[in-house]
Design a protein around this nucleic acid. Structure first.
Length: 258
DNA sequence: CTCCATGTTTAGAA
DNA sequence: CTTCTAAACATGGA
């Protein structure tokens, strides 16, 4: 599920379930999900420490603990999610690791496809190579970070090193709202296109965070629920077109998007 | 059985 | 050197 709005929702879930809680165990870690660490290493680094808070940059969540020491980085990949667990409750299917707290409750890291990752970082610093967070980004920061980008518009929006948090689905929604085709050369965009993209980015991500990334609460007129074969444009009803951009399937309206 | 998938990284090809 | 595509990763669901 996770692009920025989902991950922000996960961050809040973690904040509620784990802030102020002391870790007593790190159970059943999946080797692939915890790479390059062994589960024991993470368990040892967290045991006895208390979660202080959860920050987010793009799709990455950074958990800090006290006393000071290594931070826990959570990336949810394509199918990851945190699932709070009451004491004694069974872990859900596809649990790849389980944080246990003093008192017996905990949070499961559920991830069927195992493309998510749990790893340690020496500090709470945001790892190098991530651009500014896309949620609520200012116009000046938006223009600055995307200046001189090359390639297709969709690829640029999804480049985590330029702008952190936008993935395949929301880039389609943003581009549709902005009236720009996914494959449109970034270099062909003018100042007004950039302004439109900035507004569309803020509107799409802001709205999704507000509804806690719940697809049942999508506003009317959005592309997302129509994405797919037989889909039609929510604005002009033209059949949607499919193309490959940045290595991913994208859907757009050939009539509304130029 | 086949195809597709909300992410990231890397090897190759253009 | 730059840019783009395909594959790989591990697995589930349609």
């Amino acid at each position: 599920m996770p692009e920025l709005p989902e991950v922000e929702t996960f961050r809040r879930v973690l904040e509620r379930a784990a802030t102020g809680r002391t870790v007593t165990g790190f159970e059943n870690p999946d080797r692939y999900v915890t790479r390059p660490h062994r589960g024991r290493e993470i368990a040892r680094a967290l045991a006895g420490r208390t979660f202080r808070g959860f920050e987010r940059r793009g799709k990455l969540v950074i958990a800090t603990l006290e006393p000071d020491g290594p931070a826990l980085l959570l990336h949810f990949g394509m199918t990851g999610e945190p699932v709070p667990l009451a004491a004694g409750a069974p872990a859900p299917a596809f649990t790849r690791a389980l944080l246990r707290f003093h008192g017996g409750d905990g949070v499961a890291f559920r991830d069927p496809r195992k493309l998510g990752r749990l790893r340690l970082a020496p500090s709470a610093e945001v790892p190098a190579g991530l651009g500014p967070d896309a949620l609520g980004i200012s116009w000046s920061a938006f223009r600055e970070t995307l200046r001189g980008a090359r390639g297709g518009a969709k690829a640029v929006l999804m480049d985590q090193g330029r702008l952190a948090g936008i993935g395949n689905l929301y880039s389609d929604e943003i581009l549709h709202r902005a009236g720009i085709r996914p494959g449109r050369a970034w270099s062909s965009l003018g100042e007004s296109d950039l302004r439109t993209l900035h507004r569309a980015t803020r509107a799409v991500l802001g709205t999704m965070v507000r509804v806690e990334a719940d697809w049942d609460r999508l506003p009317r007129g959005w592309l997302l629920p129509r994405r797919g074969r037989d889909g039609t444009c929510p604005r002009c009803a033209a059949p949607l077109a499919r193309t490959a951009a940045a290595g991913r399937t994208s859907w757009y309206c050939p009539r509304c998007q130029r």
